[in-house]
Design a protein around this nucleic acid. Sequence first.
DNA 1: GCGCTAAGGTACGAGTAGTACCGTACACAG
DNA 2: CTGTGTACGGTACTACTCGTACCTTAGCGC
Lengths: 215, 215
Amino acid sequence: MTARRRRGEELERAILRAAAEELSASGYAGMTMDRVARRAGTNKNAIYRRWPNRLALAVDAYAHLAEEPAPPPAAGNLRDEALALLRRANATWSSPTGAILRELLAAASDEPELLDRLRDRAGAGRLNAAWVEVLERAVARGEAPPAAVHPRVAAVPMMLLRGEYALRGVPSVPDEVLVEIVDEVFLPLVRGRGAGGWGATSGSSRPGAPSASAP
Amino acid sequence: MTARRRRGEELERAILRAAAEELSASGYAGMTMDRVARRAGTNKNAIYRRWPNRLALAVDAYAHLAEEPAPPPAAGNLRDEALALLRRANATWSSPTGAILRELLAAASDEPELLDRLRDRAGAGRLNAAWVEVLERAVARGEAPPAAVHPRVAAVPMMLLRGEYALRGVPSVPDEVLVEIVDEVFLPLVRGRGAGGWGATSGSSRPGAPSASAP
DNA sequence: GCGCTAAGGTACGAGTAGTACCGTACACAG
DNA sequence: CTGTGTACGGTACTACTCGTACCTTAGCGC
């Protein structure tokens, strides 16, 4: 009585699923190849035939954990929409899944290709698009100058949030910090990109504006 | 003929030095306790009597690698001083020493205490102070509104630079990106914190300004 | 000189990534 | 239906690492 022998896609799915389960049970640090193999009902050979190393497997498996991001909020004003987006991101990052994502990001920090795949699986593209959309709606409402729509501006709040996570250790970022990021940085920045602003004609020798380029 | 036996501080310095050498020779990943012990001419016992684990040793050893940060530049205008500071940081981060620092930051990301020690050894405090100083001088020159002096504002460019490193893999951040950070984010932000600015009286329901608090 | 502390030496436990080898089930061709 | 190749399952193994245990011996203060 030999058990049925899976092959190809079926086996691959079983491995990915087992890896995802190990990942959420023990984190990346605790995800060992032996245990993934055992949980998938196979052996390490089948894994190493498909992925070159543990990290690559974990990055692919992470896709099974991340849920689809919700559409951008529609609060009706820039501040509240930015805050909503930021709070949602904070919740995601501080969740168990977010902890795994941070673990993987750290582990993949010297492998650009895996980093890319990981960002895909984490839906970073859609998140960025959401920020741009929020800015565009603010412009349409007359709440912000058209120049505020700029990929680097849109990325600022998330970058600062990431920075807070890097600065602190593990725990989630308190809400006051999110409010401060929005009120002390994001909104002044958006405002400042209107042609007016303080000292628009004063000292700082700013040459012709460089053209925008998405990262 | 038994060799002389070092004790106390002398031995501790020898261990730290050996660890620092291993660190710069092979990075944190390649710094094994056995090799540190051998290089220091001692054994692992002497190390584990002083540090609880490999990471703690590496964090302390890192101090022997990081050089003192130079005083903030005095270019005479905000843009050039900010750019100088940012370029210097970029050079540091992309240097071999910077690579080790990033490795350690990633490894210590879930141990707030080590993270703190590491930031001390890396001179993050003085760097932050330099940004505040640059802002203060800009205000004194009449180049920026007094409200621009805010710890969170001062931290923005470094946060964005960090973000670029996290986004990309290893290589250094191109200079255009630094220029863009300054021109598209930092300067507009500083400008926007002048009371004026675009749509100062428009929609966004911004309540009383929260008080500043240093991170 | 004596004794306590801490050093040196060595060995070991426990755990992990990744590799090698072999027999066999499964898919597919003829 | 039979032969053949691929890839799966099982198991063992290499190489390496952190961290600990244990014992002997050298310094240092008294």
